[in-house]
Design a protein around this nucleic acid. Structure first.
Length: 542
RNA sequence: GCCCCGGUAGCUCAGCUGGAUAGAGCAACAGCCUUCUAAGCUGUGGGCCACAGGUUCGAAUCCUGUCCGGGGUACCA
C-alpha cells in the first residue's frame, strides 16, 4: 500500500471537484512529526492563480477530500496552508506482514528489468598498488552496482586499464632499472620512474626466475610487472569483496582497429585537424572549452582517443546505461570523450558520470601526508591489513561522494561503540540473540500474529522507519548517492535500540511476544538487506 | 585567470530535485544494567547553515557576487 500515491490521487480528485485545473501534486514527509506522516503544499502553490488565501483554500480542499478511514486517521490544516495527513496505526502495522512475507526481498523493485548497465570503476593502471582513493572508488562503484541489481538491472562491473601508453613504458623501464641496479650493472634510477619498494621486489623476482642476463628492452620486465601488480590489485579488491566481471584493456582497441575508426569517423564530421605536428579534436565546435590533442606529435595517442574508443565500445555492446566512476582528478577528461561520442551520434544521456572527491587519511588527529614520489604513500592494502572489510567499506560509503572524505584511522580501528559500523551490526546481532533466546525459551513464534498489538510509540516509530526503506532505495537509485543507505540504516538501528530498551520482547504475554518477535524479524530482514547492499556483513553474534 | 567540488554545533559530517521549530555521531557534563547482549538507552549544554544581495507565500537548499579550503586547467592518466 503506497499511501503517498493514494493521497496524491485523492487530492487530485478533490481539486477537480472544486473546478481547479490539473496540477502536479507533491506529497512529502514533514520533518516535524507533529504535522503527521504526510503533508501537501498544493494550497500554497495554487493560491495565487486561485486568488484565495492558502489557508482557506486548504480548508476547502480538506472538506471535499474523501479518504479511507482505514488508512488515514486524521487530516489537518496548518499555517501557512499545508494539509497534513496522519496514517492509522493499522496501516503501519500492516507493513510488518508485508515484510515478513517478502523477507529479504522486501523493497526490491523490477524497475531495471530487462535493462543492462555497465559500471566502470577503479580502472587503475597496473603501475603500482591501489591507493586509498581507489578504495573509495572501488566501494562506491561496487555499491552502486549493488543498488542497480537490487532494482533488477542486469549489471556488469567493469575494469578498464591502459596498457599501451607512456605509463606502462615507464613501468617497464623502472623494473629494468631496478633489475640492473640489483645485479650491479647501473647505479642511476630514471628521474620519472616508479620508486616504490614493489618495483624492487618484482626485479628481484625476475632475477630469480629469469636469470641476470636479460636485455634492457626485454618484454619480460613489463609482462612480469603487469601480472604481479594486477594480481596484487585483485587481491586487495577481493579482500573488500569486490570482483569485476570484465577487464578491458586499451591494447585491444588498437588491435581491433577501433582507434582508427574513431579518427576516421570524426574526420568525416570535420572534427579532426592537424596542427603543430599533432592531431586535434575540434571539441570547441561541439561546445567544449578548448580543442584537445588526440595524437601527440610523437605519434602516441593521448588517453582521450582510446577512452573514446572504449566508450563507443560500451555503446556497441548495447548497454542501456553506462556508469563511470571517476576521481576528482578526472573531472576534465570525460567532457571531451562525451563530446566526441555525441558527434558520432551516440545518445550520451545513457552515460552517467559519478565523480568522487579525494580521501585524506587522519591519524592521531592529523592529516597523513602522502607522496608517491617518495614512495611513502599509504596504500589501500595498508588499510585493509589493519582493518576489517566491513569497517573499510562503511567508512568509504558513509559520506557523500561530492565531499572530501576524511578517513579517521583511529576511529576506524576502534573496536568500541564509537565505531558507527558496530552500531548497525550490534542491532543485527541483538536481534539474532533475542530470536535464539525465544527459541530456547519455547516462545510461540509463527506468522499468525496480531500486528495491532504493536502500538507502543517506540514500536510505531520503528515500523514507520521500516516502511520508509523502499522509498529510500528508490531514491538511491535515482540519485546514485549510496550514503543515504548508511544514513537510513543508522536511523533504523537507533529506532531498534530504542524499541529494545523500551519494550520487553520475550515475555509471559504469548500473543504480544509473537507479534514482537515478528517485528524484530522484519527489522532483521531490512537491516540485512541494507547491509548486504553496502557489502557489509551481518554478524549473528558480537 | 578559467572550470569542478566543498564551506552546516568544538571535531567529522547528514540534510540541498525549495517547505513549517536545521539533525546525527564523536567530544563535555549528568543519569540508567538481580530482567532477551550496556558495542545499548535517557537527559543537559552547544548554530547569524562562510558572507552579501536576489528569486519566492516560503531559502541551509535555487540564482548572482565576494571570501576561504580541495581538485583540475599538459602533446601525463
Amino acid at each position: 500500500m503506497n499511501l503517498k500515491a493514494y493521497l496524491s490521487e485523492t487530492i487530485d480528485i478533490a481539486l477537480v471537484s472544486l473546478g481547479f485545473p490539473k496540477k502536479l501534486i507533491t506529497v512529502e514527509r514533514p520533518k516535524n512529526p507533529d504535522f503527521g506522516d504526510y503533508s501537501c503544499n498544493i494550497a500554497l502553490t495554487i493560491a495565487k492563480e486561485a486568488k484565495q488565501k492558502p489557508i482557506q483554500l486548504a480548508e476547502k480542499i480538506k472538506k471535499v477530500l474523501i479518504l479511507n478511514e482505514d488508512w488515514v486517521s486524521q487530516v489537518s490544516v496548518t499555517p501557512p496552508g499545508f494539509i497534513n495527513f496522519t496514517a492509522t496505526d493499522n496501516l503501519y502495522q500492516s507493513f510488518v506482514y508485508d515484510i515478513i512475507s517478502q523477507k529479504i526481498n522486501y523493497g526490491k523493485t523490477e524497475l531495471g528489468k530487462g535493462i543492462s548497465a555497465n559500471v566502470e570503476f577503479v580502472s587503475a593502471n597496473p603501475t603500482g598498488p591501489l591507493n586509498v582513493g581507489h578504495g573509495r572508488q572501488a566501494v562506491l562503484g561496487d555499491t552502486i552496482a549493488n543498488i542497480l541489481e537490487w532494482h533488477g538491472y542486469d549489471v556488469k562491473r567493469e575494469y578498464y586499464y591502459n596498457d599501451a601508453g607512456r605509463q606502462m613504458r615507464i613501468l617497464s623501464e623502472s623494473v629494468a632499472a631496478r633489475y640492473f641496479m640489483e645485479i650491479g650493472k647501473i647505479t642511476e634510477f630514471p628521474e620519472d620512474g616508479y620508486r616504490g619498494e614493489y618495483i624492487r621486489d618484482i626485479a628481484k623476482n625476475i632475477i630469480e626466475n629469469h636469470g641476470n642476463d636479460l636485455e634492457k628492452d626485454d618484454s619480460i620486465f613489463l609482462n612480469v610487472a603487469e601480472e604481479t601488480i594486477f594480481q596484487d590489485i585483485k587481491n586487495t579488491l577481493s579482500f573488500l569483496d569486490i570482483h569485476h566481471d570484465t577487464f578491458i584493456n586499451e591494447k585491444s582497441f588498437y588491435e581491433s582497429g577501433a582507434i582508427e575508426k574513431i579518427l576516421e569517423d570524426l574526420s568525416s564530421e570535420n572534427l579532426i585537424y592537424e596542427k603543430d605536428n599533432a592531431t586535434w579534436f575540434k571539441a570547441t565546435s561541439v561546445g567544449n572549452e578548448q580543442d584537445r590533442v588526440f595524437i601527440k606529435s610523437s605519434g602516441e595517442p593521448t588517453y582521450r582517443l582510446p577512452d573514446t574508443a572504449y566508450h563507443r565500445n560500451k555503446f556497441e555492446r548495447k548497454f542501456d546505461w553506462i556508469i563511470d566512476i571517476f576521481g576528482a582528478d578526472h573531472v576534465d577528461t570525460f567532457p571531451d570523450v562525451l563530446a566526441a561520442l555525441k558527434a558520432l551520434n551516440y545518445d550520451i544521456n545513457k552515460v552517467k558520470v559519478c565523480i568522487h572527491q579525494f580521501v585524506t587519511l587522519i591519524k592521531d588527529g592529523e592529516k597523513v601526508k602522502m607522496s608517491t614520489r617518495r614512495g611513502d604513500f599509504v596504500t589501500l592494502k595498508d588499510l585493509t591489513d589493519q582493518l576489517n572489510k566491513d569497517v573499510v567499506r562503511y567508512f568509504f560509503i558513509m559520506r557523500s561522494m561530492n565531499s572530501h572524505l576524511n578517513f579517521d584511522l583511529d576511529l576506524a580501528k576502534d573496536q568500541s561503540e564509537k565505531n558507527p559500523v558496530f552500531y548497525l551490526q550490534y542491532a543485527y546481532a541483538r536481534i539474532c540473540n533475542t530470536i535464539r533466546y525465544a527459541e530456547k525459551s519455547k516462545a510461540i513464534f509463527n506468522n499468525k500474529f496480531d500486528s495491532s498489538l504493536l502500538c507502543h510509540p517506540s514500536e510505531i516509530d520503528l515500523i514507520k522507519t521500516l516502511s520508509q526503506f523502499s522509498e529510500m532505495m528508490k531514491n538511491v537509485l535515482d540519485t546514485l548517492e549510496p550514503q543515504n543507505i548508511s544514513t537510513y540504516l543508522q536511523t533504523l538501528a537507533t529506532k531498534y535500540h530504542k524499541f529494545y530498551t523500551d519494550c520487553r520482547i520475550v515475555s509471559s504475554d504469548h500473543q504480544l511476544t509473537n507479534s514482537r518477535l515478528n517485528l524484530i524479524l522484519a527489522v532483521k530482514f531490512v537491516l540485512s538487506s541494507g547491509l548486504r547492499i553496502l557489502g557489509i556483513s551481518s554478524p549473528e553474534r558480537m
